[in-house]
Design a protein around this nucleic acid. Structure first.
Lengths: 170, 170
DNA sequence: GTTAGGCTACTCGGATAGCCACTGTCCGAGTAAAGTGGG
DNA sequence: CCCACTTTACTCGGACAGTGGCTATCCGAGTAGCCTAAC
């Protein structure tokens, strides 16, 4: 049970993009520099987020990435599934069917109790992630931490954010 | 996010051992043959379960494995953690500290909101697995499926199970 | 017949190669802006 | 002065190697049972 490091990068990126002023985009190299990670590798995950419909990519010069829908409608589960893939962590190989005296095939229609329990646990995991939307993760601006984060992000936005078509599609 | 295949093997093995009559043990080759998996590889995970205190190993001829405590006191979480390791799936690398304008170190005392949310979700996952004990997974003996499973296991026990010291230690 | 000794065979335990997925990187297709020449 | 074209530079997108962990395997340490031989 191990999540790739790209998940954290993707989460921080979408969280940062959630604070971006409307009508502006941020390029992948800027995001990579801000987080101190490899631009090429981050681009890989940004593509996955774009393909999943979470981010919207604007090609060409002054292009970049932007949230495809409001932060309140993007959950942590969306981001994790987009990066890690939708398949569940526990995959039952049905080893009951192996061995010298396998059960009759008609018993295999329903998943075994072990598989059911594991999937139920993973369902709880995903449900917990589904409850959390991006706007919940922004630190309260009245706190010292929130103010510092906002200041850092705004300063970086003023330096690197670019204007782009307000809503090109849909 | 992916669990190793060994988890399923370990779960099926402990579930089978939970139905073993008291005072008997089952050897690793027998468990491997019953489930149709590699004996050497299964042995690796049985060792992990033994080191975790879930199974009890009896060395020598007529030796084998047995549950170290009643099935009602063994949870799925115990087995999963023994095989996969105790560290959480999401590890925050604190990439906030990277980049050109990192936050002040005093803000890093508390984990970021992302890390907190991910750990909370994983906590729910583990809590769900902790609720399920081995005796809950045994199919009800009055059902057709339960009867078939019991018959298969008992037949295999009569063929491969061996007597061993009733309770050597503790 | 009984018993002590040695032997054998079977078990678990840890240390050792092989392979796949994640990590990290590169170059190509596409596009908006800027520069340039002509009208 | 205005406009259309070319060039440029920057962006995203997909295809290509490197490495760590899971997969699979082997041989060694230890022990219970069995055989043998002496008493």
């Amino acid at each position: 049970m191990k999540l790739g490091d790209g998940v954290e990068q993707a989460l921080h990126c979408v969280l940062m993009l959630s604070g971006l002023p409307a009508g502006q985009v941020l390029a992948a190299p800027a995001l990579a520099e801000f987080h101190g990670v490899s631009p090429s590798y981050l681009l890989k995950h940004l593509q996955a987020l774009s393909n999943a419909g979470i981010l919207q990519s604007v090609p060409g010069p002054r292009g970049g990435y932007r949230l495809a829908r409001p932060a309140g409608r993007i959950t942590l589960l969306d981001v994790v599934l987009a990066v890690e893939g939708p398949e569940p962590a526990f995959r039952c190989a049905e080893i009951r069917q192996n061995g010298p005296s396998p059960l009759a095939p008609r018993f295999f229609k329903k998943p075994c109790a072990i598989n059911a329990a594991m999937l139920r646990a993973e369902r709880a995991y995903r449900e917990e992630l589904r409850k959390v939307t991006l706007d919940m993760l922004a630190s309260p601006p009245d706190s010292e931490l929130g103010a510092a984060i906002s200041a850092r992000a705004c300063g970086f936005f003023a330096q690197r954010a670019r204007n782009a078509p307000p809503s090109p599609s849909h």
